[in-house]
Each structure stands twice: as C-alpha cells, then as structure tokens.
Design a protein around this nucleic acid. Sequence first.
DNA 1: AATTATTGTGACAGTTTCATGACAACGATA
DNA 2: TATCGTTGTCATGAAACTGTCACAATAATT
Lengths: 233, 233
Amino acid sequence: MSRQILVVEDEAAIREMIIFVLEQNGFNAIEAETIEQAQAQIKEPYPDLILLDWMLPGGTGVKLAKSLKQNEYTRTIPIIMLTARADEDDKVKGFEAGIDDYVTKPFSPKELIARIKAVIRRVAPTALEETIDFHGITLDPVAHRVSINNKNLDLGPTEFRLLHFFLTHTERVYSREQLLDNVWGTNVYVEDRTVDVHIRRLRKAISGDGHEDFIQTVRGSGYRFSGKIQPSG
Amino acid sequence: MSRQILVVEDEAAIREMIIFVLEQNGFNAIEAETIEQAQAQIKEPYPDLILLDWMLPGGTGVKLAKSLKQNEYTRTIPIIMLTARADEDDKVKGFEAGIDDYVTKPFSPKELIARIKAVIRRVAPTALEETIDFHGITLDPVAHRVSINNKNLDLGPTEFRLLHFFLTHTERVYSREQLLDNVWGTNVYVEDRTVDVHIRRLRKAISGDGHEDFIQTVRGSGYRFSGKIQPSG
DNA sequence: AATTATTGTGACAGTTTCATGACAACGATA
DNA sequence: TATCGTTGTCATGAAACTGTCACAATAATT
C-alpha cells in the first residue's frame, strides 16, 4: 500500500521539507540530489511516482523525464515536475517529455499532496481504491458501497467521504477545520459547526446493533475515529 | 509539547501574524524586534527554535546567527531564517552562518509550520508527535489519549495540556506563572491560584492505585512533576 | 503554642462546547 | 411542476469545563 516516491531535488531544505510532508501523509520517500543519483534509484522495485526538480546540476529534469518515458520499463511511472516559476516554456517542454503534472514552487504541502494523489488516481488507480475493512465496517471506494456487519448502509455523498477519510485515518484526533479541509476540500466556505451535524448523521448511520461508538468527541479538539473503547469517564 | 519559539522580526504586522500562527499551532512564542532584544531573550531556559528575520535594524540576522552558532550554549538551537526574496546570496550567507533552514517571505502559515516541524524533527526528533511514556503514564498527543497502567484516563482540555507540559518537562520546578504561560498561553488573565485547582484536578485524575504523587508541591516556588519518590520530610 | 504564610479542597456560577431536531435552499429526477 | 434526497445553518437545551471564592489543612516562623 505505502507508495514509494522518489524525490529528485538538489536543495536540501526543500527536499527535506517535501520528504517530511510525504511521510506525514503516509508515503514512503526515497531521495536523490542529482540526475545520476536518480537514475541509480530507478530500478526494481520501481518507485510509484517521481517528484522531479526542473533545475538540477548536470542537466535539466526534462532530460531525465524524457529518457525515462522512452524506456519500456519506466515509462509507466508517473512524474510530477517541480518548476521554479510559472514558466510556460518549461511546462510545454515538460509535457512534451511526458510528465504527468507539474507543481510550481513555492507550493503548499497540501497542494503537493493533492497533486500526487490526483496523479496516482489517474495513472495507477488501484491502491487508493482498495476495499477497507475496519471492525466490521466495509467500505468499497470503487463500488461506492458501505456495509456494517454485512448489512448495507445508505450514506449521502458527504457522509461517505467523511467515513472514507476516517477509515483511512483512524486513531487520531482531527479538528473541525482539518476535517473540512480533508473531506470538503480547501477553499470551501463552510461553518465549523456543520461538521458536527455530519458527524451526527454519520454516527446515526453506523450506530446499529448496539456496538460501541466509533466516532469519539474530544472536547475542545475535534473528533476521533477509533475501534478502541472510550473510557467511561 | 509546548515548544518555545523566539520570533525576531521588526515589522510588527508580520511579527504578530507569525505569533498568532505559532500559538494556533500549539507553540509558545516570545518575541524580539531588534538584535539587542533578541540577545536579551536568549538565556535560560533557551528557546527551542529561533525564527530570525534577515533585515533587521542595527545589523543583519546573519550576524546574530553567526554569533549564536559560535557560542557553546546556543549553537544547538535551530535557526530558521526569514528572507524577503529568493536571494541566493542571502541563503548562502545564511547557511554559511549555520542556519538550519530558511523561509521566503511571503510564506503561507502552513509552510512555516511545516518547516518548523521539519527542523525540530531533524534537530530534535523526539516528542513532537510521539507517544510519551513516563513511569506508567502514557500520553499520545496524536490520538489525544492518556492512560495510566494501561487504564484510560478521561481528562479535560486543560488537564490534558497541563499533563502534556509536565511530561515533557519533568524533574523541574515551575512557578504558577510559568505554568500559566506554558499551558494557558501568554496574554491570558488568570489568577495564580487557578493553577492550584487544576493541579488538584490533575492529581485526582492520575492518582490511581496508591502509587506515589507525581506532582510535588515546592512550597513558595511552584510544582514539580517527578518520577522519583519525594522524601517525606 | 501562637501566629502567619502558603497550599488543598469542595462548591458554585458563568461560560463554552456539543448534540439534536428542524428547516429552507438546492439540484436531480420523474 | 412536484417530489425526493442532500446539505448547510440555526435555535435550543444539555453537558462539560473553567475560574474564583471561602474555608480547611498544612507548613514555616516567632
């Protein structure tokens, strides 16, 4: 599951920032500073995605991209180009070389992660779409179907996304704002309290045969999805 | 967790924005406008990280960085430089002076926080998100869970923050005022004695099966969280 | 022992936070 | 157009949390 991402970037600070963000989001990062190092890293097992800086010592990233995309074994690996400015010329050359997407520096961590996920979904959709099974709750992202103890549930779109997020992020408290970012999307103007209402709807939906409450309220902080039983304080 | 971060920035608007963002993210900010003020702030207890503006009245930030990095006691404090533009010359000078990372203004709050966390993780990798285990008390900052001898505890927000602070600052006496600063936050108008009450509530919560009192009263000074047994004298 | 300073404790009221039901707006669909 | 499902917001009441006080208990000092 844990996707391996190769980060080709020569500036140490940026590289480490990217790696931090990747690992925060459950990706497995390997790194390279130069084209030579990158080529040495691209071998079996091949990385699932390459983040490729445009300005590299000893040759541009596009050069590497082109050679990878012409190789029978590596041409399916999605490549995201990191470009310093919104240089139209760079983009054109990049897409000609076969890159799948680009991110303009400076970029926000969220944007980077969003693009990575989008590319993976587009190019190699499988692993993000595996069926999840958690304490009797089954969620099939492809069929868009949820069941609990083999009994089908009828969720609205928002509840489905919320549950999907929780099932992939259990045992961790998320603030209302974080949930809005992750489930509703950034740049959405929605009240904090709206989360409460959807939490309630989801709770109602998955609270069936007297099993424990999966969604726990952490007063002052947010909500947590957990299989463990909450202390009876 | 509450890491103390020194913000050295002369533009009031930017400084206040940064401090707001920091405190939003659970950091404890202290501030300085000039190099002199900054130097006065850098004393025990040393800040955990310094955000240092490049353009400062009375000398550049790099100057300060260099002197800090050459001092035996301060050279381990990570420094992030705030630089106005992507000036390669600044960066080079900064890294030569020993800074650990830089952020280019204007920056997004998220980027700033991500970099701070990355640097802290790189330099002092423990205990930003890791579970703390101290003499049977377990605190998971991510899941927002506390247990004592594997038995879950139900703490209120303030008790949780107080315990978290103590667990990351054990074996040391803190005055009521210091506790208010670190747990309640600066610029909060609360009576000293309020701390007593929360200490009592926390004591009550973690005093289980007759084990010793982790929180010790140091008459006239404050409180200390300790695993060692206090001589009953 | 008496006095004073400091801390522990229980109670309480004001505030904050959350759960819940209701409802109107919106879009899809028949 | 009428109906249905979905969604965001609001009002309300309940519950939890917090700061403060009064007084008891303890330690230090005379």
